[in-house]
Write a protein that binds this DNA or RNA. Sequence first.
DNA 1: TTTTCCATTAACTCTTTGTAAACAAAACCA
DNA 2: TGGTTTTGTTTACAAAGAGTTAATGGAAAA
Lengths: 225, 225
Amino acid sequence: MDNRATKILIADDEPDILEILKYNLVKEGYQVITAQNGEEAIEKARQTAPDLIILDIMMPRKNGVEVCEILRAQPAFKDTLIMFLTALSDEATQIKGLTTGADDYISKPVSPQVFVSKVHSLLRRVRKTETKTLQVDGLTIDPERFVVQYGGRDILLAKKEFELLYLLASKPGRVFLRNEILSQVWGIDVIVGDRTIDVHIRKIRQKIGVDCITTVKGVGYKFEL
Amino acid sequence: MDNRATKILIADDEPDILEILKYNLVKEGYQVITAQNGEEAIEKARQTAPDLIILDIMMPRKNGVEVCEILRAQPAFKDTLIMFLTALSDEATQIKGLTTGADDYISKPVSPQVFVSKVHSLLRRVRKTETKTLQVDGLTIDPERFVVQYGGRDILLAKKEFELLYLLASKPGRVFLRNEILSQVWGIDVIVGDRTIDVHIRKIRQKIGVDCITTVKGVGYKFEL
DNA sequence: TTTTCCATTAACTCTTTGTAAACAAAACCA
DNA sequence: TGGTTTTGTTTACAAAGAGTTAATGGAAAA
């Protein structure tokens, strides 16, 4: 699984819990941001735009449910995943939490395994629905079939090639910095050599046979037909 | 799985529970109808002809078991899936429930995951026997006889092989991730080794004799003739 | 009960893919 | 223009992933 570039915000007032959870998520390759109270959580959420927000219910300065409600009221967080941590398996709280628009909850105490696997599965569930077929000027990129079509021809790309092309084509004309490409396709903490991107770009150009990727020297690449 | 067209009726007298369950099913793409008591459940069942009916045992104005009995007595609901919710793990009630013709039961409290996965697996279980014969490019897959026909030839597949092929062929061209295959064919909580899928794929390819399953490395498999 | 068939695992091989390294070619800048 | 930086290309190699085969234990059929 690539957890690259997946940002997770955890808010809990107990530093120990925060540490443990953070440790386990970082180990899995996620980028973790922490907050110790409700207001800090909201602030950090705005600053970092995380993919998943994990909120303890019991927190000073706005509890988890309140934070969730505030965030959900904003368009930016309408589709962000939110998960609650409940100290006790307080049925009432669980229900309230879910109805206010959280996507899942975990009751503490929880084993790191279970915690991590819950996070995984929640993110996976959502990612799947994110894949949409792209159509740009006669080029079709279909993640469901994992096929690129151009001029009635099926072009088979390897995984990384496909992911790279998909990223570029997701915003035609927009320039993606090399850094951006790295963190989106390879992951935030994967270190690869300078020429790796170029080699993949080359293979894509070769396979497609049309010049659809433009180099912007000193900056990055953009997709354009 | 395409849950769009799947209608689920939930009957429970506690609005909170109803909300939580509905929320989770809707999130999975099911169409959900709710009822707050036994009689309402029967009425809504008649109106909407759901694919699955989830009944709380303890309900005012006819309890779950009574509702089940009444519905089962009607030809229209002879084959509808019925699932019970039991507040306590009351063994006696569970048994009674099942003998009156329910297909499964869940004891509350239940986590959203478990609940959703039970619903999934119940529907999957039944859909399988719902036996729609698939016809793709001269290949006929008939779940009723457990037989695959190709080029006028009958090919006998073992159960797992058949289920796997059926899944892949249900959406020709679409790539199924290994994970997806595992959870659809083997079940959500079965753990099998890495090579198990490959071995089954191999047997299918061998028996059919035509290359109809394409490997997408690092991603999964797809059916394509 | 014996036999056959099936699902799975393990061990191994084969293939594809990703990356590094080394060098060539551009583009940039003075 | 010559030197410098950035990108393109090629080749080679390691590792990931998938294919293959045989063996095992269990279930179903005979």
